[in-house]
Amino acid sequence: MFRGMLLTIVTLTLVACAGESPGPLEGTWVVSEPFPVRVTFRSGEMEAMGVTKKLSYQIDGDQVLVMHKEGATKGITFTYTVVDAKTI
């Protein structure tokens, strides 16, 4: 019973911390490798190569966890570390 309650508390905490704002990731970034791609992070979504996907974000210090809500990557979380204003 304790394990189930602990799992529920952790899950609710993660859901409560997730939001629509990309925080320090907000804006347009250019990925240079393996090929150049322009990626724009906005409130609740991301756009890359002309495709917009619904997301939620969780900010933890200099890391932003990006959780995909639709498409082939639905349910997958990517972690981005913001190094400075020009580097992730």
Rank of each mutant, 00 (worst) to 15 (best):
residue 13 T to K: 03
residue 13 T to C: 03
residue 14 L to Y: 13
residue 14 L to T: 13
residue 14 L to V: 09
residue 14 L to G: 11
residue 15 V to M: 05
residue 15 V to C: 04
residue 16 A to R: 08
residue 16 A to F: 12
residue 16 A to W: 13
residue 16 A to C: 03
residue 17 C to S: 10
residue 18 A to H: 08
residue 19 G to N: 08
residue 19 G to C: 04
residue 20 E to W: 11
residue 20 E to I: 05
residue 20 E to T: 13
residue 20 E to V: 09
residue 20 E to D: 13
residue 22 P to G: 00
residue 23 G to F: 04
residue 23 G to V: 01
residue 25 L to M: 11
residue 25 L to C: 02
residue 27 G to Y: 07
residue 27 G to D: 06
residue 27 G to P: 02
residue 27 G to V: 01
residue 27 G to W: 04
residue 27 G to K: 04
residue 28 T to C: 05
residue 28 T to K: 08
residue 28 T to S: 14
residue 29 W to A: 01
residue 30 V to D: 12
residue 30 V to I: 14
residue 31 V to N: 11
residue 32 S to W: 07
residue 32 S to Q: 12
residue 32 S to A: 09
residue 34 P to R: 13
residue 34 P to H: 14
residue 34 P to N: 13
residue 35 F to W: 15
residue 35 F to L: 14
residue 35 F to V: 14
residue 36 P to S: 13
residue 36 P to C: 06
residue 37 V to R: 15
residue 37 V to L: 14
residue 37 V to E: 15
residue 37 V to M: 15
residue 38 R to L: 05
residue 38 R to Q: 15
residue 39 V to C: 02
residue 39 V to R: 12
residue 39 V to W: 14
residue 40 T to Q: 12
residue 40 T to K: 09
residue 40 T to L: 06
residue 41 F to V: 07
residue 41 F to W: 14
residue 42 R to F: 02
residue 42 R to C: 02
residue 43 S to P: 07
residue 43 S to E: 15
residue 43 S to N: 14
residue 44 G to C: 05
residue 44 G to H: 09
residue 46 M to H: 04
residue 48 A to D: 06
residue 48 A to E: 09
residue 49 M to R: 08
residue 49 M to G: 01
residue 51 V to A: 06
residue 51 V to T: 12
residue 51 V to C: 00
residue 52 T to R: 09
residue 52 T to C: 00
residue 52 T to W: 08
residue 53 K to V: 08
residue 53 K to P: 00
residue 53 K to C: 00
residue 54 K to W: 01
residue 54 K to Y: 01
residue 55 L to F: 05
residue 55 L to D: 05
residue 56 S to F: 07
residue 57 Y to P: 00
residue 57 Y to R: 01
residue 57 Y to T: 02
residue 58 Q to H: 05
residue 58 Q to Y: 01
residue 58 Q to T: 11
residue 58 Q to N: 02
residue 58 Q to P: 00
residue 58 Q to D: 01
residue 59 I to W: 01
residue 59 I to E: 10
residue 60 D to C: 03
residue 60 D to T: 09
residue 60 D to M: 05
residue 60 D to P: 00
residue 63 Q to Y: 02
residue 63 Q to F: 00
residue 63 Q to R: 10
residue 63 Q to E: 10
residue 64 V to M: 01
residue 64 V to W: 01
residue 65 L to W: 13
residue 65 L to G: 06
residue 66 V to W: 07
residue 66 V to R: 05
residue 66 V to I: 11
residue 66 V to M: 08
residue 67 M to R: 13
residue 68 H to R: 10
residue 69 K to T: 08
residue 69 K to V: 09
residue 69 K to G: 09
residue 69 K to R: 15
residue 70 E to F: 10
residue 70 E to Q: 12
residue 70 E to L: 04
residue 71 G to A: 09
residue 71 G to T: 12
